[in-house]
Design a protein around this nucleic acid. Structure first.
Length: 173
DNA sequence: TGAATGATCACG
DNA sequence: GTGATCATTCAT
């Protein structure tokens, strides 16, 4: 079953937790690339210093304020993209960062997308995941999560194995 | 451990 | 226009 946009019209932390085990599907030309989401991170609004929404609305983060169920991609360190899904609703900014997935379909295409020596750590980081799936700001930022747009989520009833919750890592704030 | 790297934003 | 900041990755 394909997740409707309303799935994201809820509390950010709830969405982040329920995203685990769902399948992320990206169409790239004639190829279908997909993977099971294994790690997420919730970013909320003005009470969260690490969130893009924290300083208030800007041209970059307005998707977090104005949409839910949309793709929010940004460039980090000038070299890597990060994939987020916007949540909650108008005037209530939020987003879930996809940190890690487990490749399912189109694994050979993912390997082609990532010109790296080691193929074992294919999609186990935000930047690597976007490289493997061919996600960039120019092609995906602002798209709704529907099959028509070429990127969407599917519930395939994948069993969730002992989800863990903890504070964020690798953030300087 | 540290270097690579460019969009974004605040300033005025 | 300038300069500070940054939610990462890979090789040493």
């Amino acid at each position: 079953m394909i997740l409707p946009l309303d799935f994201f019209h809820r509390d950010t932390v709830t969405v982040a937790r329920e995203l685990l085990g769902k399948k992320l599907v990206v169409k790239q030309g004639d190829d279908i690339l997909s993977g099971i989401i294994t790690e997420t991170e919730a970013y909320r609004g003005q009470d969260d210093p690490a969130s893009h929404a924290y300083p208030g609305i800007t041209p970059r983060n307005r998707l977090m304020y104005e949409t839910y169920g949309h793709v929010y991609v940004y460039l980090i360190y000038g070299m890597y993209h990060c994939l987020n899904f916007t949540t909650e609703s108008l005037r209530s900014p939020g987003a879930v960062l996809i940190r890690s997935i487990m490749p399912i379909d189109g694994i050979d295409s993912m390997q082609r997308n990532r010109q790296r020596s080691s193929l074992v750590h294919l999609t186990d980081g935000p930047g690597k995941l976007c490289q493997a799936l061919g996600i960039t700001k120019t092609t995906h930022n602002g798209l709704p999560l529907t099959p028509e747009s070429g990127i969407f989520l599917e519930d395939i009833g994948y069993p969730i194995t002992t989800p863990m919750c903890h504070t964020r890592i690798g953030i300087t704030k």
